[in-house]
Design a protein around this nucleic acid. Structure first.
Lengths: 332, 332
DNA sequence: TTGTATGCGTTATCAC
DNA sequence: GTGATAACGCATACAA
C-alpha cells in the first residue's frame, strides 16, 4: 500500500496525503478526515525507507558495542534506549564480540547513510579507529574512552580506583595485590592501574610486582589471577578492577580454604547487580551505566540536530560502596 | 558521493558502476578496474537506503526484546548476532522495557518496510500480539513462547522444572516451597509451576499453598518471596523458577541466620553466569540461550529467503546442573 | 488549499 | 559489453 493508493481511495492527491501524514502545510479539515479514515481502514504505514531516502535522514542511531551480553554494555544500551525512544530514534546495534576488525567495519557500514549518528563503546581505540572516525561525516560519540577531537562520556576511572585503594590503605592494608586487564584498554586497564600505583606511592607503600596479575574480564580469569597471587605471596587485600574478576578471585580464595574478608580482603569496581547479593557482599565502586547511555544519546542527538561540532568530554562521578569483603586490620 | 559521480570520474555509465559493485552482468576488465580504482580513491560506499528502496529489501532484522540488560535476553541477542553477521544482516533492536504497548508498537513500526523479518522475545503473548502478528506480511519468529501458527523456539520448561523437582524429591525433600512469576508468562510462570505441581502430585506429595510465592524476576523479589515462605512454614527445600530469585532467596535465608543448603535447599533455573561462582554454587538447570538466538535467526532468514510459510516449533533440551545448594536428607 | 512534477541514489530492463 | 532510463515510495517546490 503506497501513498498513491491512499490518495486514490481518499480522492485527493499524494501531496495532500503526505501533508496530513506529516501535519505540514494547509489541508481542509474535510479532506484531512477523509484521508485519515482511509489510512485507518487499510492500516497504512508509510514506507520509512522511501521517506529516509527523500529526507536524507533515517532516524536511526548506530550503536557499536563490544559484547552486548555484558552487564555494562547492556545497561548502557538500556540508557540509550530511553533517550532514543523519547526522540523517535531506532537503534541499529552492532555487537562486535570484541573483534576490532568488526568495530572498524561497522563504523564504515554505518556511514552508508544507514544511520544519522554513531555511539561507539570501544574498549581499545586504535589509530585506525581515529582515522575512520575522522573520515566519517556523521556525528560520533565515544563511550568509555576519552578520544581526542570527539565528544566522549567516561567514568572517572582514575579517581574511582584511587579512592578504592585509599580505602583499603585506611583499613590498614599494606600488602595489596592487584588484578587488572590489558593496558590497551585505557579506562579499565591503564587508568585504574595507574591509580593503584599512584595511591600506593603516595602512601609510601611499595608495589610488589609478584602480586599484580592480568585477567580478561571473565570470572575464570579472576579465579586464575588470584591463584597466581596466592602462590606468589599472600597479600592482606586484593583490588580487582572489575566485579566479575573479584567474584572469581573470591571463589579461588575459598577453594584454597581461606575466606573473605577474614583472611584476604577483596574489592571490585562497577557495582554489578550481583555485588550486593553475593555472599559476602562485595565492596566496590558504583558506576551509573544507564546514565552514561542517556548522556551519550542526548549528546549525539544534539549533534545530529545542530550539525555543529561542539565537542564535549564528560566525566561522570562515582560512589564507593562499602560492603562486606574488606576487613580492617588497623592496629588500634 | 553518488554512483553517478563515480561513473563520471571513471568515464563510464552508472549502469556499469552498479555492475561492478554488485558483480553482476558483464563488464570489461579494463573498465572494471577503472571503476574500482575510483571507488577506492574516493572511499565510496553505496547508499544502503537507496538500494533498499530499489530492491525492496533492507537486510535488517528487527529484534524485539523485553529488556536487553538481562542475561537471558542479551545472550539470545549474542546468538542472533552470530547468524545475522554470517548472512549479512544488521540488527535493529527494540528494547521494550517490558511494556507490552511498546512491543505492539514496534511490531507495527517494523512493518513499515524497515526490516525484512522480526524476531520477538515476548514474555506475554496477548491476543493483540497475535492479531498484529497475523496482519504483518513479513516473517516472524517467536522466542520463549510457543505461538499458534508461527515458528517458535522454546526451551523445554515443563520437563526442565519437573526434573529439578524430581531431583529434590529424590534427595528426600517432601516439604518443598516454590518461588514463581506471573502465570501470564507461559514459559516461566505457567509451565514451570505446572511442572512443580505435577511432580509433587505424581510423588504423592501435597502442595502447601502457604509456601508458594510469586516474584517478578528480580533478586529483590526472590528475597521477599523467601521471607514470606520462612514466615508461613519452613520447607526443607525451595525451588525458584529463576536463578536471580534463587540468589535473592539465599540471601534472605542467610539474613535469617540459616544457611544453604544445611538448613534449606534451593534450586534455580537458567544457569546464569554467576550460578557456578555464587557461594554456595547454585544447583540449577542449564539453558543455552545463544543457541536459541542462533536457531531463531537461522529460521527467520530461511523464512525470508524462501518466502514460504513453513511453521516450525522447536523445543530445546536442558541439562541439570547439580551443584551445592541442595542437601540430601534421605534417611538411609 | 490543492495538485503536478521532480528528485533522493539505487537497480534492472531494454535497446544498441 | 555498455549506456539510457524507468521505477522504488516518498516529500516538496512550484503552479494553479
Amino acid at each position: 500500500m503506497r501513498i498513491k493508493d491512499i490518495a486514490q481511495l481518499a480522492g485527493v492527491s499524494v501531496a495532500t496525503v503526505s501533508r496530513v501524514i506529516n501535519n505540514s502545510g494547509y489541508v481542509k479539515n474535510e479532506k484531512r478526515e477523509a484521508v485519515m479514515k482511509v489510512i485507518k481502514e487499510v492500516n497504512y504505514t508509510p514506507n520509512e525507507i522511501a521517506k529516509s531516502l527523500k529526507i536524507q535522514k533515517t532516524n536511526i542511531i548506530g550503536v557499536i558495542v563490544p559484547k552486548i551480553s555484558t552487564e555494562t554494555a547492556s545497561k548502557v544500551v538500556d540508557g540509550i534506549t530511553v533517550i532514543s525512544k523519547e526522540n523517535n530514534y531506532h537503534l541499529l546495534i552492532a555487537n562486535t564480540n570484541l573483534q576490532m576488525e568488526e568495530e572498524l567495519n561497522y563504523m564504515k557500514i554505518f556511514t552508508s547513510n544507514l544511520v544519522d549518528g554513531i555511539i561507539i563503546m570501544a574498549t581499545i581505540i586504535s589509530d585506525e579507529h581515529l582515522k575512520i572516525a575522522k573520515s566519517i561525516d556523521k556525528p560520533i560519540v565515544f563511550i568509555g574512552q576519552k578520544v581526542e577531537g570527539f565528544t566522549s562520556i567516561v567514568h572517572d576511572d582514575y579517581n574511582a580506583a584511587k579512592a578504592m585503594v585509599n580505602y583499603l590503605i585506611k583499613q590498614g592494608h599494606e600488602k595489596i595485590g592487584f588484578i587488572g586487564v590489558t593496558e590497551k584498554d585505557i579506562a579499565v586497564g591503564k587508568l585504574r592501574k595507574q591509580a593503584f600505583l599512584d595511591a600506593l606511592k603516595e602512601n609510601n607503600l611499595k608495589v610488589d610486582e609478584n602480586i599484580v596479575e592480568i585477567g580478561d574480564f571473565s570470572l575464570e580469569s579472576g579465579y586464575k589471577a588470584m591463584g597466581k597471587i596466592l602462590k606468589n605471596g599472600k597479600p592482606s587485600a586484593v583490588m580487582s578492577v572489575t566485579d566479575q574478576m573479584a567474584f572469581g578471585a573470591i571463589n579461588c580464595i575459598k577453594d584454597n580454604n581461606m575466606s573473605v574478608p577474614e583472611d584476604i580482603s577483596i574489592t571490585g569496581i562497577g557495582d554489578s547487580k550481583m555485588s550486593r547479593y553475593f555472599i559476602p557482599s562485595l565492596s566496590t565502586v558504583h558506576y551509573n551505566h544507564e546514565e552514561v547511555g542517556r548522556i551519550a544519546c542526548n549528546n549525539l542527538i544534539n549533534l545530529i540536530n545542530t550539525k555543529n561540532n561542539n565537542v564535549q568530554n564528560i566525566t561522570l562521578s562515582f560512589d564507593i560502596k562499602i560492603r562486606n569483603t574488606v576487613k580492617s586490620i588497623r592496629e588500634s
